[in-house]
Design a protein around this nucleic acid. Structure first.
Lengths: 193, 193
DNA sequence: GTCTATATTGTGATAGAC
DNA sequence: GTCTATCACAATATAGAC
């Protein structure tokens, strides 16, 4: 099987992305070289530049696509605040447990973005936080939640929920559904009136 | 004032540590060069090796000292579980808000430790988690807490509390005492029976 | 589309003058 | 104790052959 000839743009492109994702998550953006990515894909370093303009674009596109998928994947249901919150919590855990490497990168590699790219990702993060805060504010106003500061509660809950990716292991003591349920139980009590 | 002569080991040593702390926190361990650290201190790159055996030791000692200080700085008071938990929560927030750069490094740079160094830090982290879990178990047994899974609750609470360093800014809308109080309120409710 | 080769710069670490 | 100079190598990115 020839490896030096023929067109593979539609195959190699995604493979470059995947290799970068895996390596960035494991060793960190700054610690990974283009040569390592190329070796993982099975091409020479120079060939990577057919699929990305540079290393920074590789990181940025990974993070941007991740955040856009997170935002596109969940819309607040037309329901009371408590039900909206449960839906948000369960979706957040499910989504994050499904792509631990992207979650890790999206949080750890913010400081390796150029200022312009950072501003874009920061905006997307803000959009996501605002959705949770809107739920908390609605519940606060209708009296089902007692949250002294909705912004602080938003940050606290997102940190708590996202942290699940740091310890959860597939095939461990608890399955995903059980984890979802336990987290929801803690969140529900924490914000309850 | 001569810069090339004289003994400054007791001054330059800590300055190297401080510069490494600041730069690692801002740009990440892998992205910082020994030359950058030397420039920040005001010496030549070669002179750094009088104060550290290598770059890895710089990172490891920063993290180890931080974790050991965290463990030395708090002992569970002889009190009911609810009071112990409040003491833990308030101390955790106070300690972490006091050294945001070390907290950041201790969490983000785990993967840049050699396997041997990683094992040491991981052990210290485990010791700290065990203290919180012991409180939750005691409260669970005496019936004042209702926690379906003490290990999961431990990880969830630590993630929530440590997350305070990602958004808290000195001189902002809330002062440290107010933040402590709000977090404690959420934790108290989240684990309450 | 991928290769080899290369330009240019930067890296961690060490040796030896002062 | 700090300097300058240097080693040996790795980095990103590009050019041009095939």
């Amino acid at each position: 099987m020839a490896r030096k000839q023929g067109s593979h743009a539609d195959i190699t492109g995604p493979k470059v992305r995947d290799a970068a994702l895996r390596l960035f998550a494991r060793h960190g953006f700054a610690a990974v070289s283009m040569r390592q990515i190329a070796a993982e894909v099975g091409v020479q370093a120079g060939a990577l530049y057919l699929y990305t303009s540079d290393k920074q674009a590789l990181l940025f596109e990974l993070m941007r696509d991740h955040m856009e998928e997170l935002l596109a994947d969940w819309q607040a249901p037309d329901a009371p605040p408590t039900d909206q919150l449960e839906d948000f919590v369960r979706h957040h855990i499910r989504f994050h447990l499904g792509r631990p490497e992207l979650v890790f990168i999206a949080y750890m590699e913010l400081r390796n973005l150029t200022p312009e790219n950072f501003a874009v990702i920061e905006g997307l993060r803000r959009d996501y936080e605002d959705r949770l805060e809107a739920i908390l504010r609605a519940g606060q106003q209708s009296g089902v939640f007692a949250v002294p500061d909705t912004k602080l509660a938003t940050m606290a809950l997102i940190a708590m929920l996202t942290g699940v990716t740091t310890w959860y292991r597939e095939g461990g003591r608890l399955n995903r559904a059980a984890v979802e349920g336990i987290y929801w139980d803690m969140v529900r009590k924490a914000v309850a009136a």
